[in-house]
């Protein structure tokens, strides 16, 4: 008689576990510096089909807007402030980004590859 109750409880526990796993799953972080209106590193390699977090540190005295048409992202980063942006999961390929206020110099590329070539926090 308790079997249906146990089954329901088991299913609920399973879903709760999966929910917690999705919340607690660590999202890899990639750090980018903005100095003298240049992104460093200007090429970031990230794994395919995985959500990642970009942390951009604006070390300039002026604000900048991180912008990317292919990534569909835009975010203002104030002078001497950091900003975080989640991107992905993405298919393998190259995705350009630029600073909207200085698009001639502040340019970079997110390279999405199947195999993870470098450790995220090495940036």
């Amino acid at each position: 008689m308790n079997k249906p109750v146990n089954k329901t409880f088991g299913c609920a526990a399973l879903f709760f576990g999966l929910f917690c796993q999705s919340i607690l799953a660590a999202v890899p972080e990639y750090h980018i510096q903005l100095k003298d209106h240049l992104f460093f590193p200007s090429r970031i390699i990230i794994p395919a089909n995985q959500k990642v977090k970009l942390v951009i540190d604006n070390q300039d005295n002026t604000p900048e807007e991180f912008d990317s048409f292919s990534l569909n992202r835009e975010k203002v980063i104030f002078a001497h402030r950091k900003a975080k942006i989640f991107i992905g999961p993405l298919k393998p390929g190259e995705y350009g980004f630029f600073g909207e206020y200085n698009p001639n110099t502040a340019r970079g590329t997110v390279i999405v590859e199947h195999s993870k070539k470098e450790s995220p926090d090495a940036n």
Binding site: V27, K75, I85, F86
Partner: peptide, 25 residues
């Protein structure tokens, strides 16, 4: 996408791409 970039909602797959016809840029 503002909600996706702060991870409040999950991103979904691309419906189509007409980048070759009229690019966003």
């Amino acid at each position: 996408p503002l909600l996706v970039q702060v991870d409040l909602i999950d991103p979904s797959a691309i419906a189509w791409s007409s980048q070759h016809l009229v690019s966003d840029e």
